[in-house]
Design a protein around this nucleic acid. Sequence first.
DNA 1: CGTCTTTTTGAATACTGTCAATTTAAGTGG
DNA 2: CCACTTAAATTGACAGTATTCAAAAAGACG
Lengths: 274, 274
Amino acid sequence: MSATASMPRERVFRLVPATTAPKAATKTATTAPVETSPVAPLKTSCSSCHLREICLPCGLAGNDIERLDGLKFARRRIAAGQAIYHEGEAFHFIYAVRMGTFKSSLVLADGRDQVSGFHMAGELMGLDGVAHGKHASTAVALEDAEVCAIPYSHLNELAATSSNLQHIVSRLMSREIVREHSLMLLLGSMNAEERLAAFLLNLSQRLKARGYSPTEFHLRMSRQEIGSYLGMKLETVSRTFSAFQQQGLLEVDKRHIRIVDVPAMTRAFELRVH
Amino acid sequence: MSATASMPRERVFRLVPATTAPKAATKTATTAPVETSPVAPLKTSCSSCHLREICLPCGLAGNDIERLDGLKFARRRIAAGQAIYHEGEAFHFIYAVRMGTFKSSLVLADGRDQVSGFHMAGELMGLDGVAHGKHASTAVALEDAEVCAIPYSHLNELAATSSNLQHIVSRLMSREIVREHSLMLLLGSMNAEERLAAFLLNLSQRLKARGYSPTEFHLRMSRQEIGSYLGMKLETVSRTFSAFQQQGLLEVDKRHIRIVDVPAMTRAFELRVH
DNA sequence: CGTCTTTTTGAATACTGTCAATTTAAGTGG
DNA sequence: CCACTTAAATTGACAGTATTCAAAAAGACG
């Protein structure tokens, strides 16, 4: 058995520029992150942000929204393939995605990384850093992107003035826990088809919530990254895509996806999760 | 991810009796939970609790500890097999384990449940309920147990008076996120031996932190529950135990475990996670 | 003492992983 | 602009690990 051996799994996986058309970056995602970011110190207020319904302010009443506008934070542009923060770095900021898509990942002993999540507009990243004051994962942009860098200590000060605001932060953390719950369910008890169906439907819902088509979209991540996230090999991901296409559930052309038969997809996935 | 119905597929999953029914209680863990618990309204203070180093107060300074003593909560005894709360129920309390072991689990569409964690003395349960005001998992005692039922709203009031205290709560939530991260790593990229090794070593560490032997202990959970937690079938768990025994890493007698070769176990597991 | 559950073990099967080859898309540089 | 190089994705063949089905042994409990 492979208690010890079984080492060389895959060859080198360098962090790729990540997207189909990222002319923007030959850089290898190892650029030093600038936690004390200057770049785009544009003043932005949550109350007027087009993402306010799905981002941090979500659920806040008028009074607290104004208070949230007291929050000072910088916007930062991130080129495709660049990291905002790395696992192990000191934790100071949480990040709200304004534009683009990110993956967060954890490093395994053999140097590969496992993707633990994908993040799109309005979603927060970095909350896992609160635990030990260090980032517990690495966040990399899958395409040119923009984030709000929110100083965590500042957010806390503000939260101290409003129990509602405090509750929002707690709720966001808890939501992250719940999100990971469902990923655990997926990894622990679904087969390849169910995993991919769950993944695509989840993506679909999130795109829909952001005003995009829920049935036709462009994947920002590679088969390798999808596989890493879903706990399967890239070849299996590819095969499963093909299988769905043959079954008439999907139309797949590389990273362009069209969900043809939503009910059937939903069935394939709901079989296991309720 | 959510859903409504579920449909047949090709493979049949019969509904198994929900769980390895614990004999201590022929009741099927469906006892109505008493959120507004009376039972044991003993006044307990954190500052004098023998678990203070590993439980809620962990990391608090003298001043805040006293403040924490203002926290009013009840102790509750839970019989083996009984649930403290069920998935979907309104969330009001978080629970700190005083004695005994718990599992928390999520229900799958086919009626089986997947174990998402095991909890022992000093650990908190229920933080996943903050997200939506409903418990996102079910917590069941694996042996006769005792918990502190802490009213979440009360904890919040108290937290509002101390930023340190607030930070403690946030940190605990974040720690839960990080904990789930590592489970995701495990489920996403380890084989059976690595999973079981990781599980046993984790258990070992936690027992050690509580003053028990890290190398010899009694499992409170069945093969079925371990398998559910680790994303493998109970037969595979059993076989893997046997394999470890044959390799001279473990001595196994049903639920009695003795880790004979800790370094080798560690290697089997560290191979993947750093 | 009989019944029910848990655990172990065997044999066969199924699924995913591994290895390898090919195709397609895209970036690089002459 | 085209030839060259590199990466992503697809597909086939085969291997290996975990699951499924089945049966038996070992406890636990009334």
